[in-house]
Design a protein around this nucleic acid. Structure first.
Lengths: 193, 193, 193, 193
DNA sequence: GATGAATGAGCATTCATTCAT
DNA sequence: AATGAATGAATGCTCATTCAT
């Protein structure tokens, strides 16, 4: 799994990249229902080539998910040791929401994935939630975040907000204002409600 | 031929109900991609019977959506003239969240509706958002809700939370805690930001 | 087959007539592909009632064909003993063509009937061709019609003309001019061609 | 990658030809109502292969029509400048009738086209009638054809005869005798009517 | 490796026919 | 008798996957 095993990667690598790009765009634009033929067409390759790189539709989708998630995961890991735990969590949440707004793509697929492909994708996303759990725990320990919620709650609201921004972005919702609601809601509650 | 409004609806009504129930469950479990044959099978009828009651897939979906939305719409309308505007909005939000938690079904379809079927369903949901907009405006006027958000923002967060509860309910998210985040996030901001 | 066997014919007869009328119109307008439900709807009865009167689609079609053919058959039989055999044949041909033009309906179905329902309808039309054969033989014997054709040829041209008038009537073909070609073509050939 | 215009068309071309052949036979035998699955089955391919070559039923039908019509159209065009205009028209009519007799297939579809698929097929046939119109006009100008008919009339009779030969060929109609009727009917009328 | 043709199960929808009321 | 609901096989078409070239 470690060693680069094969030589001719010049064009193969290029095709793989094109396919991932095309798949990203297509999933973002049409959802999971786009046909693989359409993705291959957009990438300028034959469906057989797509199959060679990604033996099933789910494998392709998962690769796309990985491509999106891996940088986020790295960022979350880097924040593990930030000084200000509360700021770290808010920074990461902001990063997620900004991503969802600007990339305007398959964050939603990451968050939901319907009941259709699931399994492997779910495994892939689990790592992300785990990192967020860490950030939440530290932020709660530092007093920056209310104590009466747990990682499941945060995960729920956060993926919900991501999904919502995807669906409502073109309808006037402002990511920053949406974020403000979330941010204030996560703060420790003042004396009384 | 005399006065009973409809004669042999006994079985027809029963099949219609069974179909709606099966569709509700199936859409909730598998999303919009469930096949009509599968829904018919679950309802114990032939595909032709499904067709008789709901001539297109969209018609079936819309019937399911209506069944869920109509009572909510009625409730929202009833709250229009509540004395305490802030309490009215929170009550309705709580109602929505409770629904999503207990019915555990296609609130998500209502909230997202994907890019797939749209038209009529969109029209149907528009009415709901309109009512919520009313409640929000009054709550803001009364000072119970922060001023720096508009209906699009609320809609986004709210549908996000609903979606989230649907996807994460079985993963331990607690509706009341999730709701608490939303509730506190909607309050007017204290002195500092 | 002779005695009227059942009493309650008042409304039953009326339904039967309505169904035949609706079927006639529907076949004429849409061809054989109209659904029986559509015909029943047009007749203002339920599909079960249609079925009671005509147990298969073919039975209905055949009844319609009979209704059209029987008067024509009677007319042909009446012409069998006409004094002027040539005039008799031309008169009958004219009658057919006029029918096709004014009724603008399922003469074509009679003539073609595709490869779909056939058998029984073919049997039904055979009687008509037989009568025409009689008229042709007599006309040829009297010298009014060329000798070098037989009933199969006449049948072919005649049904072709009927079909054609149905399809081309709205495109400017004039039944009388079309008929003139046929009439002159049937005459005995002058000395040389 | 070098210069052969198309690489693996060997099998594709063969399947396409098989499909056209199967479609031709099937349409001729059963009319437009044959199912595409049946045609695919007869051609020995899956329905998806049929779809790849002809994406709709109409596209398949039109391909079949073109295959028949294009040579006829070319021939008609070639006759436009013939010396003897009357002979040219008769030659073309003979060609049509011969075709209908030997190919024994979907000339009728061409002539009628039903009320079912239309559009593109209609456009395709229009060109043929236009050419025939040319030949008719010239033949009338030269005195070889009666003056009291127009292209619509000729079209009607001609397609009628084609249809008739299709339906009655196996019943003994002789193309040459049928043709004789048409030919003599088209001649200028002698002294008396 | 790449191509794109082939496959065949599957989908939404239709409709002739049957049957409970 | 009549009704209209139910049936289920069939249709045109789609698409993930496989395979010959």
């Amino acid at each position: 799994m470690v060693a680069e095993s094969r030589p001719l990667r010049a064009d193969a690598r290029r095709n793989r990249d094109r396919l991932l790009q095309a798949a990203r765009d297509a999933f973002a634009a049409e959802g999971l229902s786009v046909s693989l033929d359409e993705i291959a067409r957009r990438a300028g390759v034959g469906p057989g080539t797509l199959y060679r790189h990604f033996p099933t539709k789910e494998a392709l989708f998962e690769a796309v998910v990985h491509e999106r998630l891996d940088p986020l995961l790295a960022e979350a890991r880097a924040l593990r040791r930030a000084d200000d735990a509360g700021a770290a969590l808010f920074a990461f949440v902001e990063r997620l929401v900004t991503d969802a707004a600007t990339k305007a793509d398959l964050i939603d697929a990451i968050a939901s994935a319907g009941a259709e492909l699931q399994t492997t994708v779910a495994t892939t996303t689990a790592g992300l939630w785990e990192e967020i759990g860490h950030l939440l725990a530290r932020a709660q320990a530092s007093g920056a975040i209310r104590d009466d919620i747990d990682i499941a709650d945060l995960t729920a609201v956060l993926s919900g907000v991501l999904l919502a921004l995807r669906h409502h972005a073109n309808q006037g919702a402002n990511p920053h204002r949406t974020l403000a609601i979330l941010r204030d809601g996560l703060r420790p509650r003042p004396a009384t409600a």
